[in-house]
Write a protein that binds this DNA or RNA. Structure first.
Lengths: 89, 89
DNA sequence: AACAAATATTAGAATATAATAATAATCCTG
DNA sequence: CAGGATTATTATTATATTCTAATATTTGTT
């Protein structure tokens, strides 16, 4: 189907951004909250939140609430495999 | 490096388009010329040529001239692995 | 309930991407 | 070298992304 390719393209687009690649690298070890990610990457909170939302909407990240925090984790390990392949250029 | 992630993002962006995914699927079996691809995909020649140029500029496709034709082939098999991973969602 | 911290959402401006149409460039063939 | 076919490039318009700033929401604490 052609709709499948549109979905696949959306998935790849979600990964195709330097900041989102950095987020994936950061979350590879363990989950982090939004503020934490923002500090490590030295980017604005709202921007981080938007990027996390994009990755989550594609099923790449998951979110759990813990205390007052939103902890984002990698949900789809295929994304890590893809990034590993891309690195091996 | 941060420039690496920019390059990685460009690589993924090249794959992150429905038409370019179709092109990759078509070229998986064997190389094809521009006109041929345009007919199979029912898209304008200039559009196809642009998409092929994007894939080539990222090192994903290669080009050889044969007779009066430009034959495009898959150069980087990692791209196929990535698309296979993406399909397995 | 009020306050503070953490996160999400929205609107806006700047930039990037994509499709079309038109034109240019390439390269066989006679 | 002229003509025709193939491919590449350019300009344009429409759409999509991205970042920032501002505001709203959510949640925990007192």
């Amino acid at each position: 189907m052609d709709q499948d390719r549109a979905i696949q393209a959306e998935y790849l687009k979600a990964l195709a951004h330097p900041t989102r690649i950095r987020i994936m690298e950061l979350l590879e070890r363990e989950g982090h909250c939004v503020t934490n990610i923002g500090e490590k990457l030295e980017l604005k909170q709202s921007n981080i939140s938007q990027h996390l939302g994009i990755l989550r909407s594609r099923g790449i990240l998951s979110l759990r609430r813990e205390g007052g925090l939103s902890i984002y984790c990698i949900k789809d390990p295929r994304a890590l495999e893809i990034l590993r392949l891309v690195r091996g250029s």
